[in-house]
């Protein structure tokens, strides 16, 4: 399979790898705490895309079944999993932002390096 074919038929998986990589890189390298959380979200979004892409069936329709037959349908299970994982992700983001608000109100900064200096001075 050539690179062009790969991009034409498997672009969702390429995007997944890009999103996960970018997200992880943001978590590790950005000194800004809020951007770290955004990176975390990006990372998780990449994962969701991966699950959704795996559910795709060519020519498949939404898995809302009326009566018998009517297939093919896309696989509904990964979509349900992603729905659950999104809820988990939202809860995590909320807790992370609450902690960041507390940190900002105490130290007056969102930057990790400044935070380290401020805490070392105390």
């Amino acid at each position: 399979m050539t690179l062009i074919d790969l991009l034409a038929t498997r672009y969702a998986y390429v995007l997944f790898a890009l999103l996960v990589g970018t997200g992880l890189y943001m978590v590790v390298s950005s000194p800004n705490l809020v951007k770290k959380v955004i990176g975390l979200n990006l990372f998780q979004t990449g994962l969701f895309l991966f699950f959704i892409a795996s559910a795709y069936v060519e020519g498949g329709s939404t898995a809302v079944i009326h009566g018998e037959g009517g297939g093919p349908y896309v696989s509904p299970l990964p979509q349900v999993l992603v729905l659950t994982a999104i809820v988990v992700g939202v809860a995590l983001t909320a807790v992370a932002l609450a902690l960041i608000v507390r940190i900002y109100s105490e130290y007056g900064t969102l930057r990790e390096d400044v935070l380290r200096e401020v805490r070392a001075d105390e």
Partner: peptide, 16 residues
């Protein structure tokens, strides 16, 4: 505040 910093670090690593 120290606990909040520790918890945030835990959250980021743990979620990853």
């Amino acid at each position: 505040p120290d606990a909040a910093v520790a918890a945030l670090k835990y959250l980021i690593v743990g979620t990853t």
